[in-house]
Design a protein around this nucleic acid. Structure first.
Lengths: 155, 155
DNA sequence: TTGACATCATTGCAACTGCAACGTTTTATC
DNA sequence: GATAAAACGTTGCAGTTGCAATGATGTCAA
């Protein structure tokens, strides 16, 4: 065998691989935001998602949140536990169906969201401004990806 | 105080929040791929990234990889450790600069990549087909996001 | 009513992650 | 050269994650 007797590999450009590009873009975008959440409010992204849903929907169960904020059931459960410990949400049993746990914002959580949501909105506006006309293109692509199997399975 | 005397919250639609949309789209896309990697080759996404870079670049250091595949230094280090343990890559010291560790594919790793890379390419083609004309739009958006601060800081 | 099955939420465990600190080696400054 | 500073890679630790299993409750059919 000669020394260069190696299996030849096809060229592959990771930078042109869409799943990779998406992952990197998402990570950057999320981390930018996560820094703000953490620095100003001391919350993580899963916490932010749950809080947003509660702000929007009032009192809901873990199950209700799961599907709506793209978190697994156990993530919601643990996130809710942390949020309760930091006093931002309240958990209580549901009398109709005692398997359910009702989650809702506490006044403290509500006050925080009253401050946070406008910032998030402003961030979105700023993002759209920064992307300019490519924003609509990005959205078209995301829409296509997200609608592909949005309801097909629980994952 | 009346019972409904609550701080009013602005409406906020998580589903329309671009960072969230990106995160969900990236997660779905990545997981689809991760399933294939894991099922057929038993590797994770960080492992896949390191392997791709080695397939492309031959022999490189941890530092070289770090920037190119969007992983932190310690992630590359631990990923390399695992890949070495599973016999897919080899690690050895660099004589010129003994701080460096040279990573390279083993024949076994090379053989795996020879099988994996065509599948990844096919996946990309399939993705482009599925997205149709929105693919170009998505790419335009991603390009904008990724070029914004790609070299500005190491993060 | 009872028993089998489904649903909801939680948790034990092992693996993984992020951060900061570390040891080693090289580079820069005097 | 000697000392300080920087670069490279690794690792200890505490916290987090994902999976599968669990317990508790509800639903349905006989």
């Amino acid at each position: 065998m000669r020394d260069d007797d190696q299996i030849p590999l096809p060229d592959f450009d990771l930078d042109g691989f869409t799943p990779y590009r998406l992952a990197v873009a998402a990570k950057r975008t999320s981390e930018e935001l996560a820094r703000m959440y953490r620095a100003r409010f001391g919350i993580t992204i899963p916490e932010w998602r749950v809080l947003v849903h509660l702000a929007h929907s009032g009192e809901v169960s873990v199950r209700d949140i799961e599907a709506r904020v793209a978190l697994e059931k156990y993530e919601v459960s643990r996130t809710a536990k942390r949020l309760e410990e930091s006093g931002l949400i309240a958990k209580r049993g549901n009398d109709r169906d005692r398997r359910l746990v009702s989650l809702s914002l506490t006044p403290k959580g509500r006050a925080m969201m009253a401050e946070l949501l406008p910032l998030a909105k402003a961030h979105q506006v700023e993002l759209e401004r920064r992307l300019g006309e490519t924003f609509a293109q990005l959205e078209a692509g995301l829409e296509r990806l997200l609608s592909e199997n949005g309801a097909s399975d629980g994952d």
